[in-house]
Design a protein around this nucleic acid. Structure first.
Lengths: 202, 202
DNA sequence: GGCCGGGCATGACACCTGTCACCGGCAGGT
DNA sequence: ACCTGCCGGTGACAGGTGTCATGCCCGGCC
């Protein structure tokens, strides 16, 4: 009996290449490929996929969110996050959302098929180095307000712009930025935003 | 007769997946895989690769630089840039460096093999949409000083930090930032840096 | 020589940022 | 009712930032 797979990645070339790689295995069968996060659930239902490989950065909906929806709406389908970025916060959030596994794109190609089989069998698959890093890092110390303000600051927005986009007073925005800078141990808003992103706090 | 390929990409999974994809073609053979830019030339010489597929973002040396070295040091070996980022400036610089082709990672998987064959035959392979964008965009209007200052600004550095790292007076740094902001049509240093990066000007 | 033009620097000005002390509301717990 | 914490907001201050006019130096060029 073969395991039915769905691949979700916004880069068609990577999607196709992964399909070729996994199709080499006798017990795996790629039944669907999608390039957007918001198409995954429908296709998974339509094709009866048993394991979905999800990239995190996709248009429509990110892989973590999709993993959550699959866990809720598509019983019998497990998800495996396959991502470029081994940010600790991503791993934590992915597992909380109900993902069955989490591997980064620089794991050896030979291990992917095995990870898929493990996830299909209901086991948790997690990159060990990343897991360790995630545990010592702890969860994000940022409040929701700080997070949303930092997201805007990433692109270099001014306080006025941020305050308009987040519906907070300029003074509050400055306070949030100040406390975020403090919590990240940095000294400018952009450094803070980049540090937070690197740790998966955004 | 088969075409001998070398794959260079820092993500092992992508590398392996591309190898699987290309190995499906009867006339293509993957003879080497490397994860760093600075290993490509030696491996290409050792294995007699005829076409090298190069990612741009790699440790050691970036794909554009590698394409230049291959063109100079490995006669009979052509290069095909395969990258995530379709920045116009990348395309321009890659072609100037002597790359035989340039495709982005969201082209359909089926077209990659054909691109490889074209490059092997000595033809130029270029993403058409990207080529058009590159022509209208023109080359980077930034001076060397502005470029180096902007690179530091990307991470949110202050003027004092930048001036120390670039060996320019603080006043000059501010002038360069100001003119870069003007040239990019933005209003803060970070916006300018991001805009420049998006257009491949850095 | 005289005359650019570009790279680097300075100084002054208005405005923006980061920090801090402080305040009003509004939940949860006692 | 009381206190405590937390979220949102205000105001003031020192220092950083973006802009502009101006100047110097040096290499090219008629």
């Amino acid at each position: 009996m073969t395991i039915r797979l769905l691949l979700a990645d916004d880069q068609a070339l990577v999607r196709g290449a992964l399909a070729a790689l996994l199709s080499l295995e006798d017990d795996l069968e790629v039944v669907a490929e999608v390039g957007r996060g918001d198409e995954v659930v429908a296709r998974a239902l339509a094709t009866g996929a048993e394991v979905c490989l999800l990239d995190i950065e996709m248009p429509g909906a990110d892989g973590i969110e999709v993993a959550g929806r699959l866990a809720r709406e598509v019983p019998g389908c497990r998800s495996l996050i396959v991502t470029t970025f081994g940010r600790p916060g991503y791993l934590r959030r992915a597992l909380e959302a109900g993902a069955g596994g989490f591997v980064v794109k620089d794991t050896p190609a030979g291990e992917l098929a095995e990870a898929v089989r493990r996830v299909h069998a209901g086991l948790r698959v997690v990159d060990p180095a990343l897991a360790a890093e995630s545990l010592v890092g702890g969860p994000s110390p940022l409040t929701d307000g700080e997070r949303s303000v930092l997201r805007e600051a990433l692109e270099g927005a001014t306080v006025a712009t941020i305050s308009a986009r987040v519906h907070l007073s300029p003074g509050t925005v400055r306070n949030y930025l100040s406390s975020a800078i403090h919590k990240t141990g940095t000294s400018t808003r952009v450094e803070a935003a980049r540090a937070a992103q690197r740790r998966g706090w955004l």
